[in-house]
């Protein structure tokens, strides 16, 4: 079995393991963040570049000149590889750059975004980003397009991770949406007015790392941190029927797949379970679900933010001016 050393920790992994998977096997802080890679989706990863690491020493089988930044999610471990992640300052800086790129055109509308609280971009920017933006231009805006009655597409928030396209290709059949146009005006779209409608299309919501695809049946119902996640199951003839239901009192606000600590679902669930079974009597509730991931749901995670001093004098002035008018 090939042996790889990541941030001075060595591990032996099965042939074909990627650096990212190897890092996840080790666990802890040295696991690179991933916005587009998704274990269950074939050929996913490589686009967002947040998981870049530096391979400082290659191997006999990969004679390319090293050191070299590579994407950990798509680079297979080879015996003798030495990888640096958080121990390499240059790399940490490079990742900050990637986070900044992802944010310059993001609308930062977290206060009105259903994804807030479980958004990977939010987590990523808290952990790796800068507290202020150097981007001074108008942010990119797309027109809103309706893609059906269950899923809301909010293209401005999209980071083009391609996960939803891969879900449509690999989990659903008859893909009707994709990426159209190119460059920084590329967008997720059906091109003609068409609804994304398939028994498993709801999984696109679960895989979306940001608030670009959200559940219309949950829209503006609650902030996720006020809802109480419970493991639940039912006999379903389409899917495994194992889900997480999000409760407020006795009401089921929404149903999602069961996500692991990297935000990846354990199993795909069908649209019946997700959108139509909103009665507590539809489900056998197993018990509270532990949300084991980097997320603001985990309270006080960003204690360090309390030390941030935010200058609000400008806003105060504007407010006072408006008040005095």
């Amino acid at each position: 079995m090939p042996k790889v050393t990541i941030d001075n920790v060595s591990i032996e992994v099965p042939e074909g393991t990627t650096i990212l998977q190897a890092a996840r096997m080790i666990g802890g802080n040295l696991v690179p963040p991933a916005m587009c890679y998704y274990t269950k989706l074939d050929t996913s990863g490589g686009y967002c570049r947040t998981c870049i690491v530096k391979v400082t020493q290659g191997s006999e089988r990969d004679p390319r000149p090293m050191p070299k930044p590579v994407v950990s999610c798509r680079t297979t471990v080879m015996d003798g590889m030495v990888v640096e992640n958080i121990t390499n300052e240059e790399l940490v800086e490079a990742r900050k750059g990637v986070v900044e790129f992802l944010l310059i055109n993001h609308p930062l509308d977290c206060p009105v975004c259903d994804q807030a609280g479980e958004c990977h971009l939010q987590d990523l920017s808290y952990e790796n980003g800068l507290s202020k933006s150097r981007y001074e231009f108008k942010r990119r805006e797309f027109e809103m397009h309706d893609i059906g009655d269950k899923i809301k597409l909010h293209m401005n928030r999209c980071i083009l991770c391609y996960r939803c396209v891969k879900v449509a290709d690999q989990v659903c059949d008859g893909r009707v949406h994709g990426v159209i146009n190119r460059g920084d005006v590329a967008e997720i779209s059906t091109y003609i007015q068409n609804s994304v409608d398939n028994d498993f299309s709801g999984n696109m919501i679960d895989v979306c790392p940001v608030g670009a695809l959200t559940d219309k049946t949950f829209r503006f119902k609650s902030r996720v941190w006020f809802a109480k996640p419970m493991d639940a199951h039912r006999n379903c003839d389409k899917c495994c029927g194992k889900v997480a239901v999000w409760l407020s009192g006795d009401d089921i606000l929404r149903v999602t797949g069961r996500k692991d600590k990297y935000g990846e679902v354990e199993d795909w669930i069908c649209n019946d379970c997700r959108f139509d079974k909103k009665q507590k009597s539809d489900w056998v509730i197993e018990g509270p679900r532990n949300i084991d991931r980097h997320s603001v749901i985990a309270q006080n995670k960003y204690g360090v933010l309390k030390q941030l001093k935010i200058d609000v004098s400008k806003q105060k002035q504007i407010g006072e001016k408006a008040h005095n008018k």
């Binding site: 790129f101 992802l102 460059g183």
Partner: peptide, 9 residues
Amino acid sequence: CGQCSPCRE
């Protein structure tokens, strides 16, 4: 092409 974020943005 718009695939990866550093170049796209």
